[in-house]
């Protein structure tokens, strides 16, 4: 009977094969018990389908729109970060990499002991402890710290704001 029940529900949903449809129609004509089960399930099916949706309070939409008005407009990510901005970052990094590689290439000392030998090269040593490099590294670390602090500030400000909005 349980299996029949499932077939009847599927039949009412329109999810039965041709064979199952024929079987149901045959049983409806020949089996009184099956017909009674079918009528009962069909009645429930029709009642659920005809159920009305619940209505929220009259002020629901108005209250909600008041809250929506306080929200920032949702902006597509594309317009937040223009293509030129992404391309600009890519161009900057590519230029920086090419610049460093160019300097390195021109500073390499190339030598060849005989014509049949491969070229030999010596990569120049960069004295990281020299005052100029030390200044650059300190500057780099300083800028990084500023950037990290800035992002922390933005992140926590947003969290506090959203928490306050939620409590309202």
């Amino acid at each position: 009977m349980n299996n029949f029940e499932q077939i009847i529900w599927n039949y009412l949903d329109g999810h039965v094969s041709v064979e199952e449809k024929k079987l149901i129609e045959q049983l409806l004509k020949s089996d009184a018990e099956f017909l009674s089960l079918f009528e009962e399930i069909k009645s429930i099916h029709l009642q659920i389908s005809a159920l009305d949706l619940d209505e929220p309070s009259m002020s629901f939409g108005r209250n909600l729109m008041e809250k929506i008005q306080l929200e920032h407009s949702p902006v597509p990510q594309k317009s937040l970060l223009g293509k030129w901005f992404i391309n600009g970052i890519a161009v900057f990094f590519l230029s920086a990499i090419l610049f460093v590689l160019g300097i390195l290439f021109f500073k390499i000392e190339w030598s060849q002991s005989s014509e049949t030998d491969w070229f030999e090269f010596t990569i120049p040593q960069f004295a990281l402890d020299s005052s100029s490099y030390s200044f650059l590294i300190n500057l780099f670390v300083f800028v990084d710290i500023i950037v990290v602090l800035y992002f922390f500030d933005v992140f926590f400000s947003k969290r506090i704001k959203s928490k306050n909005d939620h409590n309202l």
Partner: peptide, 10 residues
């Protein structure tokens, strides 16, 4: 909101 509020509420 108007189009979906009844079902969302239900």
């Amino acid at each position: 909101i108007k189009q979906h509020q009844r079902f969302v509420f239900t």
